[in-house]
């Protein structure tokens, strides 16, 4: 089984945070994901790599049921979320509940046209939190967690859109962190950023894994190699190989993975 490929590497397997089993996904009649099995380990960074159109973003967006926003989409299989073993894809589970437990950071920074403070506070407001002191504390903690506090603490009333691109993305990370998510999804978070802002975000992700499980889609293989503990290679909607990042990049088991990693393809 692909899912247990890392057993060969002499390493203690960390506890599971989520596990996809026989996951397939259809956009109307087009099958975008084919029978995916993959574990997500707690407080580790797992990267999804693969060429454009391989389904890695589609797969990521299954975890917070983003596909439910659009008609004609269908999930098959399960994503079991630990420790309570809730099936994230079950029709009986409200997607709102899923999104309250799992936060997401998007490809392009998407701060709301509100103040910096209100951007970070939004997740708390959605949860009905109204005590000013609680929100103040959580906003500060989230901005510190996103390494943005020092730059914005004197301008919390300013529009989020007035920040630079890299700062906006860290603002979106703060927004995602403010509600203490169990899993944090990143959809190519640095593809719209310059190299310095990218380095900042990568450093931040490495710090964040101390407290939260991270699943990240990236089209930059070096980035996957730098920041992730586990890497999954996807191609045409299939999970080709999953393993410890070092193993994937140094001695991939599958020929297709090797071709992609070495740049012969993709």
């Amino acid at each position: 089984m692909i899912a247990h490929a890392e057993h060969d590497v002499a390493e203690v397997v960390p506890p599971l945070k989520a596990e996809a089993r026989n996951l397939s996904f259809h956009y109307g009649s087009f099958q975008a994901l084919k029978n995916i099995n993959m574990p997500v380990y707690e407080r580790k960074v797992t990267s999804l790599i693969g060429p454009s159109g391989c389904g890695k973003s589609t797969y990521l967006r299954c975890f917070n049921r983003m596909h439910d926003l659009y008609p004609g989409n269908r999930y098959d299989g399960t994503i079991e979320f630990h420790p309570d073993r809730t099936d994230l894809l079950s029709k009986a589970v409200d997607p709102i509940e899923v999104r309250m437990r799992i936060s997401m950071v998007f490809q392009k920074p998407n701060p709301f046209p509100k103040s910096i403070y209100e951007n970070v506070a939004y997740g708390l407001r959605v949860r009905g939190e109204s005590a000013r002191s609680v929100i103040d504390d959580k906003v500060e903690a989230a901005l510190k967690g996103a390494a943005l506090w020092g730059e914005v603490k004197d301008r919390l009333k300013e529009l989020g859109a007035n920040l630079s691109g890299g700062q906006q993305q860290r603002l979106c990370i703060a927004r995602a962190l403010a509600t203490d998510p169990e899993l944090l999804l990143f959809d190519e978070p640095t593809s719209a950023l310059d190299p310095i802002a990218t380095a900042n975000i990568e450093e931040l992700i490495s710090e964040l894994k101390e407290r939260v499980t991270i699943l990240i889609v990236t089209h930059n293989m070096q980035q996957a190699a730098r920041i992730s503990d586990y890497t999954a290679y996807m191609y045409l909607g299939e999970m080709i190989e999953f393993g410890v990042t070092d193993q994937i990049f140094i001695k991939p088991r599958r020929k297709e993975t090797e071709d992609y990693i070495t740049g012969r393809f993709g």
Partner: peptide
């Protein structure tokens, strides 16, 4: 309104009514 703003709000766990009234 860009779709990505909507998605950002939904990703925070908002209901459609919260997305409509807040954004």
């Amino acid at each position: 309104i860009p779709q990505i703003i909507r998605e950002g709000a939904y990703a925070c766990g908002a209901t459609t009514w919260q997305v409509v009234s807040d954004h």
